[in-house]
Design a protein around this nucleic acid. Sequence first.
DNA 1: CTGAAAGCGCTTACAG
DNA 2: CTGAAAGCGCTTACAG
Lengths: 349, 349
Amino acid sequence: MKVENPTSRDIADLAGVSQATVSRALRNSPLVREETRNKIQQIARDLNYFVNRNAAGLRTHQSNTIALLLFDDSDTKMNLFFLSMLDSITRSAARLGYDVLVSLQQLTDDWHIEYQASHRADGLILLGYGDYAEYREKLAALAAAHTRFIIWGPLVEGQPGHSFGCDNEVGGYLAARHLLELGRKRIGYIGHMARRSPEHAARYNGYARALREAGIEPSETLHVSADNSETQGYEAVQQLLQRGDSFDALFAGTDLIAIGAMRALQDAAVSVPGDVSVVGFDDMPLAAYVSPGLTTVQQNAQLGGDALVEGIVNLIEGKPVQSGLMAPKLIVRESCGATVVQRDRGSAG
Amino acid sequence: MKVENPTSRDIADLAGVSQATVSRALRNSPLVREETRNKIQQIARDLNYFVNRNAAGLRTHQSNTIALLLFDDSDTKMNLFFLSMLDSITRSAARLGYDVLVSLQQLTDDWHIEYQASHRADGLILLGYGDYAEYREKLAALAAAHTRFIIWGPLVEGQPGHSFGCDNEVGGYLAARHLLELGRKRIGYIGHMARRSPEHAARYNGYARALREAGIEPSETLHVSADNSETQGYEAVQQLLQRGDSFDALFAGTDLIAIGAMRALQDAAVSVPGDVSVVGFDDMPLAAYVSPGLTTVQQNAQLGGDALVEGIVNLIEGKPVQSGLMAPKLIVRESCGATVVQRDRGSAG
DNA sequence: CTGAAAGCGCTTACAG
DNA sequence: CTGAAAGCGCTTACAG
């Protein structure tokens, strides 16, 4: 009873029912008598039959697929945080019956409005940091094409579509509070300053809020602009040291910047955390392994991925979706001089 | 001239030609007069039209999609090496006109024979380390279902399907040669010993070959079995130290093991590389950041990903495919005591 | 609870 | 170079 590429018609013949009944039975329609359904499903299993997704999709105008668009225009390799989100995204999607199509994009690429138009995906998840000016335009184009999408990122006033992200303002606040509680007073900031990046702006704002609450006015001379790379973190500290304005702590916009900064400090014979405390942002696997271990602000990739999938699936299914933020968490290691109860190396990697 | 969800028929009406001609024009058929083709393509662009993949796939029995199945049964998070391969895989696939469907699997899961049977993918790329006994069974099932697939991994005698991987034997040889050239004589090995994992067996064999070439018989008492985790590397070194047999170098089957091993040595006040040299395998981003920087054997993820995509696409298109291996490369950092010309931190991350 | 029938939107022999 | 027509394999109103 071998059929090479069985169709529902083959099963119908074998079961002695109509093809329509086979289709119903395989979709667990209550319209089909249980006995009939069981028989049909058994035959399908025996034949190694699986519904042709193209045919089903053509009929139903669905693909049961989510496209995950990763973009990254920094000079580093694909951000590991996004990669680690891939894990929870694919798992959540699978649980809800969706496949995940992955595409790595340059921000300058066409943004594949066609994913939905071509019925390859029912909706998009957008993941990555980028220049927001350019970004906004693309989002508007997606919205104009009636593409369903959800963005990982902050709530931005007037931005088309839905988003879910980390509360970067709170993250920056947590980082700066930690430094203040350790007695640090002259706390610098290294990161994106421009409003090109609302993520980084929010981190900065949280930092500034904590300082002001402590009666300290953030000092321009302790701020250095840097993109997300170790090199830029390194160079930023060199600049800072040249300026000659003293500082006893640094809040870096990302872990990569923080790691570069720590290295620059060490190369300049400045002790971390003896002379200067350093806090990062992201908690990438590296953060636990550098020396000293980097205290940083963690975004929960698991929660984030789950929320994004839930959001896009709700969008696809026409249910209401709210943009939202999740709370970040301070991970204390050695780079600030706080007493560490137990060294957390995080997950291996 | 707005059409909500345009089909080729809408374009045909607008262009004053038949739907068949539209289909030909959009696929750049030479059968269509250039003028007609240009006109049709212009209209398609104006309408934001994209070919319905379900309909096209139903007709052609193709999905132009590759399924990437990542599995990992180690206790660590998804192996970063595989994740970094994702980059070159999606890019290569895109260049060849294929989408990439990603699925994270447990080795114990069903292996989605249905990806191809359901016409969701034209072929599979299998990525991950695993228990080979269990593995083999699944591969046989895939082959029995006429599923096209290519595996990242070693050439294994009698294994169904095609594969592409790193020459682990040469990698192990390079690592051990390096240690021998630095004057090390008592070189231990930490890693999988069982033949469950041909990858690790090959690494061990290369190591043993280098030793024997140098007139040294690999010593049982300097071998400790360990899975791919920092913890197991740490514990392995503790065991080794307890045994009391002296050693001046360690070759670890993976970077994670090596990093755990280095930490155990440091915790036991054994200097790395002063007393003991350590070499790892993989060159994960971490390797450049631990202290001392880990000398290790690098597998080129870029090349690997490209080769896997090329392989599966050839398989899909009925072209001949050869299983193959690529040469690994020794990355010298500080953990062995060799003179390092320039510190290579590799790519950020 | 089941069947006959229409139709989703394409691709491609076939005929001209 | 172009068109009319068949058909890919499903899902789902419609009728019974």
